[in-house]
């Protein structure tokens, strides 16, 4: 091969690679610039089953709740904020399903993050939220659970093991299905 062809090859191959890479990435992001982790995937996100991190959440009514005292219950840990539209969207469904499961071994905990307590209070009143909710003032719980956006929900089984994680608003049906599954011992899952 002459020098000319070598130059063609040496210049062409990396450029082709570059374009292919950019095209692939564009397909992946759907022509939409992705941002770090946020809302890239809505719905269920795979988590490693591991003991859920302990927390103590001061509640809006002045008392407090800890994960340890909820052992034996399926715990839904919901991270939300009053200003977040998807949280507002799913709030009635959450409140409703919670009431449906009253008396069974299910406990919802609302963790309000990146928010003001007075707004959180108004939010719970507006949407008739009856399960314990509190403000995670310094973001301790949110950081411990690696929350990247709101709403995010973590499902913890009766043994205190983190089982499933959902990003974005959830509808009633999915919520019921996940709860039933975990109440039944999580057979469908793993």
């Amino acid at each position: 091969m002459s020098r000319r062809w070598w130059i063609l090859l040496a210049a062409g191959a990396p450029v082709l690679g570059l374009v292919a890479l950019l095209a692939w990435a564009s397909v992946q992001s759907g022509g939409r610039p992705a941002s770090f982790g946020i809302n890239r995937q809505l719905g269920e996100v795979a988590v490693e089953a591991r003991p859920a991190e302990e927390f103590i959440l001061p509640l809006l009514d002045g008392s407090s709740i800890s994960l340890a005292e909820l052992r034996g219950n399926v715990v839904v840990l919901d991270f939300w904020a009053s200003w977040c539209p998807p949280c507002q969207e799913e709030a009635p469904a959450l409140a409703k399903v919670y009431r449906e499961y009253a008396g069974r071994e299910v406990q919802f905990v609302g963790v309000d993050i990146w928010d003001r307590p007075e707004d959180a209070q108004k939010f719970t009143e507006k949407y008739g939220v009856t399960y314990p909710s509190g403000v995670d003032d310094r973001g301790r719980i949110a950081i411990n659970y690696g929350v990247k956006g709101i709403p995010e929900k973590f499902f913890i089984d009766r043994g205190g093991v983190l089982r499933r994680k959902f990003v974005g608003p959830m509808d009633e049906t999915t919520l019921r299905r996940v709860l039933d599954d975990l109440l039944a011992g999580g057979r469908k899952f793993r």
């Binding site: 990435a25 992946q28 939409r32």
Partner: peptide, 14 residues
């Protein structure tokens, strides 16, 4: 509409 996150992007577009 490049595929890399940035504070500058013009946002979603084809």
């Amino acid at each position: 509409g490049g595929p890399v996150p940035s504070v500058h992007s013009f946002g979603a577009s084809t």
